[in-house]
């Protein structure tokens, strides 16, 4: 009996020891890694749904986490340019350096849209590689999920079978959910909308929404009153149903527009944890579509 208990304890402790430690830069990748890794991974998310991932401090706690990480799961495409390189340099951890097995950038596995024609800083905060906000489309999530699952298997080959099972299960559930979402959102097709920042491209494209205008004339630069007035002018020509804002963004510009035009404002979660109802990837899209349908009423 004693040996049994000891061997059980050993099993428990060794399995806890063997967990792949994952550092996710954004909550959507933390959620996806949990789906694909289950109990074999322990996941830390560096940011939450109410934080702008462009502007994160390379805090002491993040350096401490990065030091112990086996796998870095981030968006890439310069989204984390302001803080991730510092963590990599300060952590003293070869596993998470560029190109290493523990360095996984989601945008490396999909084709990015909106690659700028002219790369010039006068155009605002643009990303040379293209629009990095891919988590707003479930198609992109699925593509990344496949690559991520392969990478987790590579990092922890001992549990490859379990990861394969989880991937099969996830892709089944995800495809079924996608079919549901597309059906539910069918009425949203061609609905005219306004966005605050250029971070909804993939959602707009997936659901076939009709993006009429952007509040930020230059991405990442708070719009001036003059620029907002031009948006109002545009909306007089082609009225839109709603203005989309991410939960982490400043409400000022969109509130101004609501005030001027009476347009409906929809605050979308943008990522997991962006509101109370979006606590995983499935509920994120459930909630996003519900909010869009409410907005389109």
């Amino acid at each position: 009996m004693k040996t049994f208990i000891f061997s059980l304890l050993f099993l428990v402790s060794s399995s806890a020891w063997a967990q792949v430690s994952v550092f996710a830069c954004e909550p959507e990748w933390a959620s996806l890694t949990k789906e694909l890794g289950g109990d074999n991974v322990s996941v830390f998310s560096a940011t939450n749904g109410l934080q702008d991932p462009h502007y994160i401090q390379a805090r002491p706690s993040l350096i401490a986490k990065a030091r112990k990480t086996d796998l870095l799961v981030c968006t890439g495409a310069e989204l984390e340019q302001g803080w991730l390189p510092l963590l990599q340099r300060k952590a003293g951890n070869s596993a998470i350096q560029i190109g290493a097995e523990g360095y996984f950038m989601a945008t490396d596995y999909v084709r990015l849209a909106e690659q700028p024609i002219t790369l010039d800083r006068s155009q605002g905060h643009i990303h040379a590689a293209g629009n990095p906000h891919i988590q707003t489309s479930p198609v992109m999530i699925l593509t990344v999920a496949k690559a991520l699952s392969d990478r987790i298997k590579q990092r922890d080959p001992a549990n490859a079978e379990s990861y394969e099972k989880r991937w099969q299960d996830f892709s089944q559930r995800w495809k079924a959910a996608m079919a549901e979402w597309q059906l539910k959102a069918a009425s949203l097709k061609s609905i005219p909308i306004v966005v605050q920042h250029k971070n909804w491209f993939y959602l707009v494209h997936w659901l076939g929404l009709n993006q009429v205008a952007e509040l930020e004339a230059k991405p990442g630069v708070p719009p001036t009153v003059k620029e907002l007035q031009q948006v109002v002018g545009k909306l007089e020509q082609t009225p839109a149903k709603m203005v989309l804002v991410a939960a982490y963004q400043s409400p000022r510009a969109s509130d101004w527009l609501v005030d001027k035009t009476g347009i409906k404002k929809v605050v979308l979660p943008f990522t997991v944890g962006g509101n109370d109802k979006s606590d995983n990837l499935f509920s994120l899209f459930d909630n996003t579509i519900t909010l869009l349908l409410d907005g389109a009423k």
């Binding site: 084709r111 198609v139 699925l142 593509t143 059906l183």
Partner: peptide, 24 residues
């Protein structure tokens, strides 16, 4: 039918997505 339309949609985008490495 629904599933296949959904899949067709998905596949259309996925195909587009799959072209990425070739284009990079």
């Amino acid at each position: 039918q629904r599933l296949s339309t959904a899949e067709a949609d998905t596949n259309a985008v996925a195909e587009q997505v799959a072209m990425a490495p070739a284009l990079k």
